[in-house]
Amino acid sequence: MTSLAATPLAAVGEVGKGFIHERTGETLPCQARPNHLFCWDWATENIHRYGTPTLQQFELTVISVLIGFAIAFVLALLARRFRLLQWPLLAGTGILFAIPSVAFFLLLLPITGRGRETAIIALSAYTLQIIYRNVMQGLANVPESAKQAARGMGLTDRQILWKVELPLAIPEIIGGLRIATVSTVAIATLAVFAHAGGLGTQIYSEANLTFPTAIILAGGIAMLMALAFDVVFLTVQRFATPWRRVEAV
């Protein structure tokens, strides 16, 4: 069956019409040719439109990952304390992870409506599993002997957690944050469906959906942002774990 929805694809026929230069009113030359991959003239002319969406995308990502981290971290500590919680928490966060973000945004429709709040809830929920798993993995990888020695030397349970286990889990924890952040940058593009702004607004609009230049620009900015986060996390991880840089005998 064909779609009954008036998807923006209906705009396909309008590709040839071209984009009008904002100030001069001329038709940009590369717009005359359909399927032209990238129109530099248009890009330089319109790059300023991407400022706000980029900032929104950045905010959505940072806030969502921060919230996701706070919750996942607490969940992981709970699971460490109460081992019975481990499986339910893994399964629960797994369910939140598996629900497609677009669906998640709109599932919240009757509860939070549309907007930034909705997008942040769904995106944070998505990051929980990634971060939770990594924190748990990090704690599990702490050598038993170090914990045993710590206890034998008179560290309290809390001191063992904060002075031994968590520092040693830093690589996995940062690894989880890295994966969560990079994925969230990509997925935050879908926040347009929650009416929460972001770079998706520069793709999912009637004019742009058939215009490769606009799509490449938005997608490119998102990927660069992901790359930047990746580099930041790798650097932080390097400096936060000096003992992993040394050469073992």
Binding site: Q148, A149, A150, R151, M153, G154, Q159, P167, I170
Partner: peptide
């Protein structure tokens, strides 16, 4: 914990803290 701080403890797997330097390990 208070009792253990007054009793030295050495185990087979040694259990040095990989993230702390030798001096920091000794200073625990």
């Amino acid at each position: 914990p208070r009792l253990r701080r007054e009793i030295g403890y050495v185990i087979q797997q040694i259990g040095l803290f990989p993230h702390r330097t030798i001096a920091q390990n000794i200073a625990t």
